[in-house]
């Protein structure tokens, strides 16, 4: 039982990281109908910003955190203007390829600027974790889980209760109709990119003390997060969260009870099973192709 609880905690912790990145995928997909393959690099860039401010410049942790997130908001604007906006009237394919290109550009730019050495970023708390009976709770994972819960609540409030959230939803559902109603579609998409960049950045900063800060940290998380969005139902906010958590738990238990080397295999086995038997994911609705 001790073992199960320990695995459950770790699984939920790592799953929460996938969920945060998956949320970024989903928001951009809803707004633009495009998968942003640079979402993982958003996390990596934010983690490096954090290293620059907190480690290299020696600024206080909370200040570095706020400035790094502000930096990510600005980064979202630049990404939107540089990658999405020029191609917004094209089909989804050129945009997807542009995001892949941006992802390669970002990781290699960071490599060129910062060099290949992985960096250490301290966690938010001085205590590495707490021992609760037989289970060790890593403080950083606790923080990640806490932030994920808060974000779920925030998202619900933001998208359901605020005018801006409703405008964003309207834009994602039908851009032409939203435009006719006086909503500035390009502003809404800009806001979506900003929010996704901040979310991805938040995931990167939170996970950096656990996984270290390296060029490839984003791509490994993003791959799992992408799988999580498909499992949860592409385009569904709750689906991204549930998909991420489910994936984290499944792969942790699969590794512990079946095989460690095939840990990644379980995640993708679940993904394939969903694609075959329930392609719309857990929360997705079956969408019939228009004739």
């Amino acid at each position: 039982m001790d073992l199960v609880l320990q695995l459950l905690f770790t699984g939920i912790g790592i799953g929460a990281v996938y969920a945060l990145v998956a949320l970024g995928f989903v928001l951009i997909f809803r707004a633009t109908n495009v998968v942003n393959f640079a979402q993982g690099e958003f996390s990596m860039v934010a983690a490096y910003l954090m290293v620059v401010f907190s480690v290299d410049l020696g600024w206080p942790y909370w200040l570095s955190f706020l400035i790094a997130l502000a930096g990510m908001a600005l980064f979202g604007v630049i990404f939107n203007l540089g990658v999405y906006y020029p191609l917004r009237h094209r089909t989804y394919l050129p945009v997807i390829i542009a995001t892949i290109g941006a992802s390669i550009l970002l990781s290699n730019s960071v490599l060129a600027i910062y060099g290949p050495q992985p960096q250490v970023l301290q966690g938010w708390f001085d205590t590495p974790g707490i021992q609760l009976g037989p289970v060790y709770l890593d403080s950083q994972y606790l923080l990640i889980i806490g932030v994920t819960i808060l974000l779920v609540l925030f998202n619900f409030w933001f998208f359901e209760k605020t005018l801006l959230g409703k405008k964003l939803q309207a834009t994602s559902q039908d851009k032409e109709m939203a435009s006719l109603l006086g909503i500035s579609v390009s502003t809404m998409i800009m806001i979506t990119f900003i929010y996704s960049a901040v979310l991805g950045g938040l995931a990167g900063i939170l996970v950096a003390p656990v996984l270290f800060v390296s060029i490839q940290m984003g791509s490994t998380i993003a791959l799992k997060a992408f799988a999580a969005t498909i499992i949860g139902g592409f385009g569904d906010v709750a689906g991204a969260i549930v998909g991420g958590l489910a994936l984290g738990v499944i792969e942790t238990f699969g590794a512990a009870y079946i095989s460690v080397p095939y840990k990644d295999g379980f995640a993708f086995l679940v993904l394939i099973a969903f694609l075959v038997f329930r392609p719309q994911g857990i929360f997705g609705e079956r969408v019939a192709e228009k004739a």
Partner: peptide, 8 residues
Amino acid sequence: QDFTPVVL
């Protein structure tokens, strides 16, 4: 990304 199963 996680070695908990290995450590256990």
